[in-house]
Design a protein around this nucleic acid. Structure first.
Length: 200
DNA sequence: CGCCTTTGACCAGCGC
DNA sequence: GCGCTGGTCAAAGGCG
């Protein structure tokens, strides 16, 4: 089986040994959803009653002491051919979505994002926020919305692949030094994504 | 001054 | 064809 490509292939931040989050107790990894290539739906898993195409074991996903969380990988209509196409053509064709339980709306992943829209969506009293990568020429987008059924959960969807280095290695150092719990949690989240979809 | 968010308008896709 | 919905644009204003 081919794992979908990491939306942030240039992620080169700290390794496991150097990065252990002690704060996962207030940042639960509930669902991790991958959609490779353009799919019919938006790649979001509709709770537990809609079984995904395939499920990655939670051991693969969870970070160290966390233990709470289930990972879900959904492959849409095209299989390996879609992946190949996506790698040879322009993005955005990679889409990664995950649902987390977090008090914070925005996942700070080290990239710089610029908000360009905000919309009310159907079946969700909460607004959906649209972000673009601020780097010039980078077309990666992400959507962030609160789960309509449980506002404690945040659904984040990345679309596309960054074509540049992560701009904030220094920033991560700052995060560590400032001991920002929330950012630590987010960092752990993204580290988990790397676990489930190694850049190969 | 540059970059960001906000927000209403606009556009495209889809179902009926 | 029409209406609904989601996604994007762009002007205006705020902030450092």
């Amino acid at each position: 089986m081919n794992f979908p490509q990491n939306p942030n292939p240039n992620f080169t931040f700290l390794s496991d040994e150097n990065f252990i989050s002690p704060f996962m107790d207030n940042f639960d990894f509930t669902n991790l959803m991958f959609e490779v290539d353009e799919g019919g739906n938006n790649g979001l898993v509709q709770e537990e009653n809609s079984p995904p195409t395939s499920i990655v074991s939670s051991e693969t996903l969870t970070c160290d002491s966390s233990g709470s969380g289930s990972a879900v990988m959904t492959l849409s209509k095209k299989d390996s051919t879609g992946i190949k196409d996506a790698e040879t053509k322009e993005p955005p064709s990679h889409r990664v979505a995950f649902r987390t339980r977090s008090k914070m709306d925005v996942m700070d992943d080290g990239y710089k994002w610029r908000k360009y829209g905000k919309k009310s969506v159907k079946n969700n009293i909460n607004k959906r926020n649209y972000y673009k990568c601020s780097s010039e020429g980078c077309m990666v987008k992400k959507r962030i919305e609160r789960d309509g059924k449980d506002a404690a959960y945040v659904i984040t969807t990345y679309e596309g692949v960054h074509n540049h280095e992560i701009p904030s290695h220094v920033y991560y150092s700052d995060m560590v030094s400032s001991y920002d719990h929330n950012n630590w949690n987010q960092h752990s989240l993204l580290q988990s994504i790397q676990h489930i979809s190694p850049p190969s």
